[in-house]
């Protein structure tokens, strides 16, 4: 999927203050955040608990009014209502009317989005199939597991075929199988041309599916990067396990990329800087070698995240 440079979401100097209780001092939750999301990308909005991720999403969805600053989605001010016909939203730990069945729930949301009647039934059935709930479609939601509710949540997000979807902690509380399913759904949305804005703190998922990230801490954006820059910035290393590596190719790799090699019988373990991984793999495969495994060693988004948040905390403490 090619990412268009046009911003589909632009947030400018967004500030939100909350009053914790009557007569108490206001607390600043969002402190002048600004960033953009481009059309067609999967954007990961990450940060520790209480950093302001959910508040940002709720402001974008018009559930919380900004104290100052503003945002535009698809060129519309977020205070407008009509453009939400092109926007999908999955809140964290979504709750639905448990007296409705899965099918009735999707029908209800499609009616709210004014999906034309002839299209409604087809769209509901299509989504039930897409999220794997056809067999449970006529069960009341009170009988659904957490993973099934999350899938209903994803389906209601898509029921009106939006251009952009906002997902708040879509993998939260799911088992590994459930996480994989949701991840695959998001990848499917991406390849189908949708823009995805995802709040999460599961960094391994972000690494796997996001094109770009922004890190928020204490209500401020402290880091923004796209996937390529992220890999370069993280400075981690990669282990590649190879069999059938030609000696000439091995020498060339040692000379050109400063790799470390260790032979284990027929298998050779190569450690290299992650920024060279594409070129090295190209040479190995081109030279007739067979790659058996590729694994990240240290570095990665987790290190960047901890480093960035740590630096921000130290700065805040000063």
């Amino acid at each position: 999927m090619v990412v268009d440079e046009t911003p589909i979401v632009s947030i400018e100097n967004l500030v939100k203050d909350f009053r914790p209780g009557f007569g108490l001092r206001r607390k600043r939750v969002l402190d002048g955040i600004s960033f953009e999301v481009r059309r067609g990308e999967v954007f990961g909005f990450i940060g520790p608990n209480g950093a302001g991720k959910t508040t940002t999403l709720k402001v974008l969805m018009g559930l919380i009014r900004p104290t100052s600053g503003g945002a535009r989605i698809l060129g519309h001010d977020i205070s407008e209502v009509g453009f939400r016909r092109h926007v999908g939203f999955l809140p964290e730990g979504p709750y639905f009317y448990d007296f409705l069945t899965g099918r009735e729930t999707l029908d209800f949301y499609s009616r709210l989005c004014a999906v034309p009647k002839p299209e409604r039934g087809r769209r509901v059935e299509e989504l039930l199939h897409k999220v794997g709930l056809e067999d449970a479609a006529d069960l009341r939601l009170r009988a659904y597991s957490k993973g099934m509710l999350q899938r209903v949540g994803i389906a209601q997000t898509l029921v009106h075929d939006p251009e952009i979807v906002f997902l708040d902690e879509p993998m939260s509380g799911l088992d590994p199988v459930g996480r994989k399913e949701i991840r695959d759904l998001i990848a499917g949305l991406h390849s189908g041309g949708k823009t995805v804005f995802m709040n999460t703190h599961i960094l391994s998922d972000v690494e796997l599916i996001c094109d770009r990230i922004a890190i928020i801490a204490n209500g401020r954006i402290v880091h923004e990067a796209d996937a390529a820059a992220l890999h370069a910035a993280t400075g981690g290393e990669v282990d590649i396990s190879v069999i059938g590596l030609d000696v000439g190719i091995a020498e060339g790799l040692e000379r050109d990329f400063d790799v470390q090699m260790e032979g284990r019988g027929e298998r050779i373990e190569i450690r290299l800087a992650s920024k060279h991984v594409d070129e090295v793999i190209g040479r190995i495969v081109g030279g007739g070698g067979h790659i058996r495994a590729v694994a990240q060693v240290g570095g990665g988004l987790e290190d960047l995240f901890i480093e960035t948040i740590g630096a921000n905390r130290q700065q805040a403490a000063r």
């Binding site: 709720k58 969805m61 018009g62 559930l63 209502v81 009509g82 453009f83 939400r84 016909r85 926007v87 999908g88 939203f89 809140p91 730990g93 979504p94 709750y95 639905f96 009317y97 949301y109 709210l112 989005c113 004014a114 949540g153 209601q156 009106h160 906002f166």
Partner: peptide, 14 residues
């Protein structure tokens, strides 16, 4: 309280 309002008001519903 049931958090059902979030999914409704994020749709084109004033």
């Amino acid at each position: 309280d049931r958090r059902t309002i979030f999914t409704i008001l994020s749709k084109p519903v004033s």
